[in-house]
């Protein structure tokens, strides 16, 4: 494992910790899209089916279990915690899951490495992860006030895949020129979706102003 991949994983982990911290400490999930969080549960459940079939490393197994556990607990808080669920912006979080999930599934049926259940679901999870942030970005655009924890959460979540892109370039040159179009192109799409958010996040940080996305 190289330093870029490790930095990417740590950024991803940190983003989730910040989100859980926000939910637990402030007892509020204002500004967080339940649709996006549910899509991440689907992403992790379909990607980590190989937990049962192959072992890569202690690190991989532990991280997979942490991502599964934390994503499920975030959804649990937002749907069932008696205080937290009242802070959920249901009326603004209207993006439909299936607009994203169905096309990703069809694409995975068409473009994959191997036509097996595990492989198609893995590919589906890569495609779905690329676009799963969309409901969250739509919700942020509709929010008048984006609190710091929410802004930092989305920033770190976007930075994670950008670091993976660097990791893939590094691996290409150091590991026998392995080519992996499916994650590469999906990761590129995923990072591009954040471009606009990154611009306003950095601008607000430099000017020391409150983050707000133009409608």
């Amino acid at each position: 494992m190289n330093v870029f991949r490790l930095a990417g994983d740590m950024t991803h982990l940190l983003s989730i910790i910040i989100l859980l911290l926000k939910i637990r400490a402030t007892k509020s999930c204002t500004g967080i899209s339940l649709k996006t969080q549910e899509l991440y549960v689907i992403v992790f459940l379909t990607r980590y089916l190989d937990l049962f079939t192959k072992y890569i490393s202690f690190y991989n197994t532990t991280m997979k279990l942490v991502f599964l556990g934390t994503s499920i607990s975030i959804v649990w808080y937002m749907r069932y915690h008696k205080v937290v669920k009242q802070t959920y912006n249901k009326d603004q979080d209207t993006f439909r899951h299936y607009f994203l999930a169905i096309p990703c599934f069809l694409l995975a049926l068409l473009i994959h490495h191997e036509f097996t259940v595990i492989e198609v679901l893995w590919t589906f999870s890569i495609y779905l992860e690329a676009v799963a942030i969309l409901p969250q970005l739509v919700l942020l655009q509709r929010s008048r006030n984006i609190d710091n924890l929410t802004g930092n959460y989305v920033f770190l979540l976007g930075a994670y895949r950008a670091l993976y892109l660097v990791n893939w370039v590094y691996r290409y040159f150091t590991e026998n020129h392995l080519v992996r179009w499916i994650p590469w192109l999906s990761g590129l799409v995923q990072t591009t979706l954040y471009a606009d958010f990154f611009y306003y996040y950095i601008k607000s940080w430099k000017n020391n102003e409150k983050l707000q996305l133009p409608a």
Binding site: R5, D9, H12, D50, I56, N60, M63, K64, F67, H113, E114, E119, W122, Y164, L178, V179, R180, W181, I182, P183
Partner: peptide, 10 residues
Amino acid sequence: FQETKFHDEL
């Protein structure tokens, strides 16, 4: 440019 199947990332 053959795709390598290599799922060792998260």
